[in-house]
């Protein structure tokens, strides 16, 4: 029995040690605190940070200030921000980035220690509660589902915990930002474009690009990783059970 397992599979999904570029993980923590940890399969930490990000960002009106800053309206940007909350935000934000970078670097070391060992893992977890199994899935399909509604790609690529939390947050963010309402108004009557802009809540709306692209990236990269894991597990099995040493070979 290996001291460190390379991969596991249970009814909540699969998880494996993989190489992650620390800078990329740190970037996703910067785009949306919590995403970096989700990418590293640290779902409790990731969800706590995700929740904090939304509470602190919403109360400090940081996104709104960002909108004003990008437009060039710096006076409004200064006025709209809540000083108390923004001062909480700063250490929180940098902790997320630092912690995910550090963790990714450490996990890479564990990956190099374990990557040459054969993959011995459960490939099917059959339960009355939920069934999960290892097979190959299409990375682009996963990312397209997540672009359509963040969380669906995670469901497709058997990441049950991030799928549930992302779906919940997607609903909360979509409903609060009124993007779909604005889109509907615009499609029904393109002349009402100003009305459709006014209906959108900028504070909530700015969560959307990070949410969509972050979950699309997560779904894509995890599908690639799990496909790789599948191949390695199959190779281990075939080598052990069907290798040349197990049979008489005459060519």
């Amino acid at each position: 029995m290996a001291r460190r397992k390379r991969a596991i599979l249970d009814y909540c999904g699969s998880s494996s040690l993989n190489y992650h570029r620390p800078a990329v993980v740190a970037w996703w923590s910067a785009a949306f605190p919590g995403f970096g940890h989700t990418l590293l399969d640290m779902h409790v930490k990731g969800n706590v940070l995700f929740l904090f990000e939304i509470i602190i960002n919403f109360n400090s009106k940081l996104n709104l200030a960002m909108v004003y800053s990008f437009i060039g309206d710096f006076k409004h940007a200064t006025n709209v921000i809540n000083t108390q909350w923004i001062l909480i935000y700063i250490p929180f934000y940098f902790y997320c980035i630092w912690d995910s970078y550090r963790t990714a670097a450490k996990l890479n070391l564990l990956y190099t220690l374990t990557k040459d060992q054969p993959v011995e893992m459960n490939v099917l977890d059959l339960r009355s509660l939920e069934t999960c199994f290892l097979d190959k899935r299409l990375p682009w399909v996963a990312s397209v589902w997540s672009i359509l509604l963040p969380g669906l790609g995670q469901l497709y690529t058997r990441r049950l915990i991030p799928a549930i939390s992302l779906l919940a947050w997607s609903v909360a963010i979509y409903v609060n930002c009124h993007e779909l309402q604005g889109m509907q108004l615009f499609i029904i009557d393109p002349a009402k474009v100003n009305e459709s802009i006014q209906v959108i809540d900028a504070e909530w709306f700015l969560f959307i690009p990070s949410l969509i692209w972050g979950s699309a990236y997560d779904a894509y990269s995890k599908t690639v990783e799990t496909n790789h894991l599948f191949e390695e597990e199959l190779s281990t099995y075939l080598y052990r059970e069907w290798g040349a040493n197990q049979s008489r070979l005459n060519i």
Binding site: F70, G182, F186, I197, L206, I208, P209, S210, W213, Y217
Partner: peptide
């Protein structure tokens, strides 16, 4: 994916001032 997020955030913000609005520009 990284560039899409950066461009999406900036584009959606600026979109509030442009004629087609933040969704389309985003």
């Amino acid at each position: 994916f990284i560039f899409a997020t950066v461009f999406g955030v900036v584009g959606a913000s600026i979109g509030f001032r442009l004629t087609l609005g933040p969704i389309i520009w985003g």
